[in-house]
């Protein structure tokens, strides 16, 4: 509706003045790189000299490249594992720490530590755990429990490495799920549990009919946030297990190592971006029903 009075028009103008700086920053730092990235994906990018327009050739090459499909598979495994893992572990921790027991507040604080810890230092810790020669993992598996005879470099193996990366991510990020779920748990009206008990439900029925429906949107939010974060996640995977090639890592190797091909890398980014937008759209419409 068009503002009618002088005052309304003045207020409108003032509003635009207030949001203008943010719009400028967003445009410069987010919109411009995205558009430039889309632009690059249609070119054979030359580090020295002019870019050569190649149309859809980059995309055609990608879709026939088995390394790209391997990367997609790794990404899917990584996403499913981390999203399910953090959500379930967070839920379990929140349910447990919503019970009353002595020392609860201390535990509630301590459980957040992995989330606070700087990535770089804990990554080195984890690498040490899995070190083939000195690591505690191989010591336990080989020497103590005799599960295999052979010491393995778990982290360097692309197939096993993805599992380590998933476990690492769950350990590092379940506290955020736990935090969000716990705060919702604390706001559930205890009357509802009492009503469900009176209606004949034991602990499991009360969890299923009261707790879960109340947590639906929190769980939904956690799942989508984790999806977004982890589809774009670079540093944790790259630092911990550089052989695990999720899409961001694959893009990095394509763009900056070996036969440097930034046009091809740009087209991977575009596909990743479209994938993410599609996922979010589907999820918001069908699961969260916003």
């Amino acid at each position: 509706m068009k503002p009618q009075t002088v005052l309304e028009r003045a207020e409108n103008r003032f509003g635009w003045q207030l949001v203008a700086p943010s719009l400028g920053v967003i445009g410069l730092l987010i919109l411009y790189p995205i558009l430039y990235n889309v632009y690059l994906s249609f070119f054979d990018v030359q580090l020295v000299g002019d870019n050569v327009f190649v149309g859809l050739e980059n995309y055609q090459r990608l879709l026939t490249d088995s390394a790209f499909y391997d990367s997609l598979t790794t990404t899917a495994i990584y996403l499913l594992g981390t999203v399910a893992g953090t959500t379930l572990l967070g839920l379990g921790a929140a349910l447990l720490l919503n019970q009353d027991f002595p020392g609860r507040n201390v535990v509630r604080g301590l459980i957040l530590l992995p989330y606070f810890a700087p990535v770089i230092s804990v990554v080195f810790g984890w690498q040490f755990i899995f070190d083939p020669v000195n690591g505690v993992y191989n010591y336990m598996v080989v020497e103590v429990f005799n599960l295999t005879d052979e010491r393995m470099n778990v982290i360097r193996d692309p197939d096993l490495g993805v599992i380590v990366v998933i476990v690492f991510d769950i350990w590092k990020h379940f506290p955020i799920a736990y935090l969000l779920i716990l705060s919702k748990l604390q706001s559930i009206n205890t009357d509802l549990y009492e009503a469900a008990a009176i209606d004949g439900h034991g602990p499991w029925g009360r969890f299923w009919h009261v707790t879960l429906p109340e947590l639906y949107f929190v769980l939904g939010t956690i799942v989508i946030l984790r999806f977004i974060w982890n589809l774009n996640k670079f540093e944790e995977v790259f630092l911990l297990a550089p052989n695990v090639q999720t899409l961001p890592i694959f893009t990095y190797y394509t763009a900056f190592t070996g036969v440097i091909d930034q046009g091809l890398a740009a087209s991977v980014s575009v596909i990743q971006f479209v994938l993410l937008c599609g996922l979010i759209w589907f999820y918001v419409k069908k699961v969260l029903k916003w």
């Binding site: 009357d191 509802l192 009492e194 009503a195 009176i198 004949g200 029925g205 009919h209 009261v210 109340e214």
Partner: peptide, 20 residues
Amino acid sequence: VPPQRRNIAMVFQNYALYPH
């Protein structure tokens, strides 16, 4: 005997209806 096995019905002050 826990409430679910007492065969009682109860009306709460704040209704306690299941919101979903």
